[in-house]
Amino acid sequence: MSELLKVKNLSVQFPTDKGTVYAVKDFSLNLNPGEIMGIVGESGSGKSTAAYAIMDLLQGARVTAGEISFQGRDMLSMSGEEKRSLRGGQVGMIFQDPMGCLDPSVKIEGQMVEMLRQHSNVTKGEARKISTEMLRSVGITDPEGVMKGYQHQLSGGMRQRVMIAMMLSTQPKLLIADEPTTALDVTIQDQILELLTKTCRENHMAMLFITHNFGIVARICNRVSVMYGGMIVEEGLSEDIFYSPGHPYTRGLLEAIPDLEPGAGRRLKTISGTPNDPFAPPSGCVFAPRCPDCTGICKTEIPKRQDMGGGHGVWCHLARQEGRKGE
């Protein structure tokens, strides 16, 4: 099984008037076909930025990487045209806030047909038929009606379904989902997640699922990467991350999940401190300022990846010792 997407040492910087923002540093991942991989982190951790950088969707950014390859093809040396044809074709993307994602002045039909005709040679009529079927398959009960309408006539959940239908209509091999359910009601979240995982199963589609919600990750992801301050701090299979988290940040996140068990008077556990200044990242480990186990070396040296076996890696100086601990 050769990798579908391979990224090595991706870094993203934004030069601004006030200085350079170091958004992503040394981001790497390997994604196999049909795999669902979660990228977890808080706002500002660089997870979305990394994903957009891979697809060359960032403007005004300085992107450097050791390697970015998709289906074995080197993306770094591709022309703009080639990258453009990948987008929407083999690689689909769905975004966080469905409210502003569709063109307000074009009918849904037009936008979906445009998508299909951009990436394949179907006629307008065929495209219309395929689009209608796609809308039906994402759970829209009146696809013809929706096709004839405009985006402002649809609710948030419906718009997100339209987006998904549109992006899946070209049968991509990889779907990058940037917090697609964050802006939706909980009940809708459920349905959308069902929809996405079903498609991955049936079409052998890989999905990069970006979120800050560990619950979703636990539910649908095979593998997880945890990001903080623009860097990956831990990666591995879901079970490994949840049952034996190696990085203090991961542990902090898991402990912060409120417990529904009765037992009065327990305070919510939080991770103390605040996120780093994006203009002046700390030298040494990015999490050092907030880490409860921080030692001298943590403040001076950036930790390398410590292999914990079975694809589980932790970027922490103390990892070897803490290896088997933690719930």
């Binding site: 569709l102 063109d103 992006m167």
Partner: peptide, 9 residues
């Protein structure tokens, strides 16, 4: 939506 249009290729 412009970002989405670019993502559409």
């Amino acid at each position: 939506y412009v970002m989405v249009l670019r993502a559409k290729g």
